[in-house]
Amino acid sequence: MSKQNSIITSAATLFQQRGVNAVGIKDILTASQVPKGSLYYYFPNGKREIIIAAINDVGKDLCTNVAKQLQTSSDWDISFHNLISGMVESLQRTNCVGSWSLSLMVLETTQDQQLNELCHQIVVKLSNLYAKKLQSLSISSKLASRLGLIIQSNLEGALMTSVALKDSVPLLLIEKQISQLVRNVINEH
């Protein structure tokens, strides 16, 4: 892994574990094992520039993970189950949302318009991934878009609750509820 990638990956992990505001440059240097000079070579504007890179990196990983899981089957229940299983496995292994959530970064970047816009774009992309999958099941574009946002919102909440409780039950419950909702919508249309 390159020094630049090590910095981004380490920072993203720390931001997701502790929050953006609780992590300093020293923490990032320690976690990435990169010399201070290298950090400022790649990120001359310091922490803010690292935050931007970390949000982009987490967003890319998150969208890739979600898209990959949603493509595992043409059947909604199977692909959504695979998505939830990946989240549960990550939580059980690390008790951290890893590359499954942006929540903590979103909450701590609301006052910065550029950072908040980056998070906004990622949430829209995620909602659109769900909507695209739902459209493949013959759900109208308008309804699929609404459901995509509902799914994204519920998953973020379930992930945060699962982390707080150190228990995957909220994710498993939301899997059942969302799958039932999608089945109901399909049967009604």
Rank of each mutant, 00 (worst) to 15 (best):
G157D: 03
I55G: 01
D112R: 04
M160H: 10
K26G: 03
Q33T: 13
A11M: 07
A54Y: 02
G98N: 12
L102R: 12
L159C: 07
E156A: 13
L173G: 02
L173T: 08
E175F: 12
N128S: 12
Y40V: 02
S179R: 04
I178C: 03
L118H: 14
K176W: 09
N56V: 12
I178F: 07
I52D: 08
K68H: 06
K132M: 02
T9P: 01
V124C: 05
S99D: 06
A67E: 12
I8S: 09
Q33K: 14
V185C: 04
V97D: 15
K47C: 11
S6K: 14
T30K: 13
I174M: 11
N128H: 10
L107T: 08
N184D: 12
C119T: 11
N128K: 10
Q4G: 14
S99Y: 09
S85M: 07
L62D: 01
I84V: 15
S127L: 10
L143Y: 01
Y42V: 00
S179M: 04
T72Q: 08
L171S: 10
G37F: 13
S140P: 01
L118Q: 15
H120K: 12
T72S: 12
A158P: 00
A144S: 15
A131Y: 06
D27C: 06
A158L: 07
M105G: 15
Q17F: 09
Y130W: 04
P35I: 07
Q114M: 08
S99W: 04
L115N: 03
F15G: 09
Q69V: 10
A11H: 05
M1D: 10
S32Y: 03
L70Q: 06
K133G: 00
I186A: 04
N82L: 02
L159G: 04
N56S: 14
L126S: 02
M1G: 14
W76L: 01
S6N: 14
D57C: 10
L62P: 00
V182K: 01
K36C: 10
S141M: 05
S140G: 11
T13M: 09
I25E: 15
A131D: 08
E188A: 06
Q113D: 11
K176F: 12
Q17L: 15
I7R: 07
W100C: 00
Y42L: 03
E108H: 09
N128G: 10
I8P: 01
L104F: 05
P170D: 13
I7A: 11
N116P: 00
G59R: 00
A131H: 07
V163R: 08
T64G: 04
S101M: 10
F43Q: 05
L104Y: 07
L102Q: 14
N21G: 10
N154L: 11
W100V: 01
Y41E: 02
W100Q: 04
V182Q: 03
Q177P: 00
V23T: 15
S73M: 02
V169C: 13
K176A: 13
S145C: 06
L39V: 06
K125L: 10
Q113I: 06
E89H: 11
D77G: 08
V106A: 15
V106Y: 14
S141W: 01
T109H: 13
L181V: 02
L155C: 11
L159Y: 04
A54N: 02
